[in-house]
């Protein structure tokens, strides 16, 4: 079985077609940024994109993917961070950080389809992603910052150097 993940084709020989994409990513491909939280599409920690649409990978059997392209948190940034990832750092969103890959994939998908979302649109797009640590207000602030950065620019044109030494470690407020 061939699956396209982050622009690269992966041969998953002999894989169980029932296996959810989540576990294939984690155990077969070695991309563990996508997280297991509930296994029943309740928490959103496993959110990835299938042809740019955010889905819960715990509910997507390998056999149903066919020729659709998978994008995971590891594939969101190229050499530079995606503006949503940058904003997540700048607002110091994470506490434990476990849900944040899923949050970021949902937020980036939202901004791709709606670069200037209203508060209601943000609430609607993010309602499926649980943050048990309760970082919701920072998530909203980070999405708004990323939105500002993205408007008028094509999706991957924006970004900063990702080396940690470029970053002064201070939180923007």
């Amino acid at each position: 079985m061939q699956v396209s993940i982050n622009g690269k084709s992966h041969e998953l020989a002999g894989a169980d077609p029932d296996m959810p994409l989540l576990w294939a990513l984690r155990d077969l491909v070695g991309l563990v940024g996508t997280k297991y939280g509930c296994g029943v599409a309740q928490c959103g920690a496993c959110t990835v994109w299938l042809d740019d649409v955010p889905i819960r990978s715990c509910q997507m059997p390998l056999g149903a993917i066919k020729d659709r392209a998978v994008t995971t948190i590891e594939g969101l940034a190229g050499d530079i961070l995606h503006p949503v990832q940058e904003a997540w750092i700048a607002h110091d969103v994470a506490q434990c950080g476990y849900c944040q890959a899923g949050q970021i994939m949902s937020a980036a998908a939202l901004l791709k389809s709606n670069p200037n979302p209203s508060s209601e649109a943000i609430e609607g797009a993010m309602a499926g992603n649980i943050c048990r640590c309760g970082t919701y207000s920072r998530i909203v602030a980070a999405i708004q910052t990323a939105s500002t950065r993205l408007q008028g620019l094509s999706f991957y044109e924006v970004g900063h150097d990702t080396t940690e030494s470029q970053f002064d470690g201070k939180v923007s407020v």
Binding site: G33, T72, I89, D92, A94, Y98, I104, E164, K170, V171
Partner: peptide, 19 residues
């Protein structure tokens, strides 16, 4: 206000958790 030391790894989905 100092950013979490793990923030950079977290937003990139790097393998830092027990799982």
């Amino acid at each position: 206000r100092i950013v979490n030391a793990a923030a950079s790894d977290i937003v990139r989905g790097r393998p830092i958790f027990g799982i």
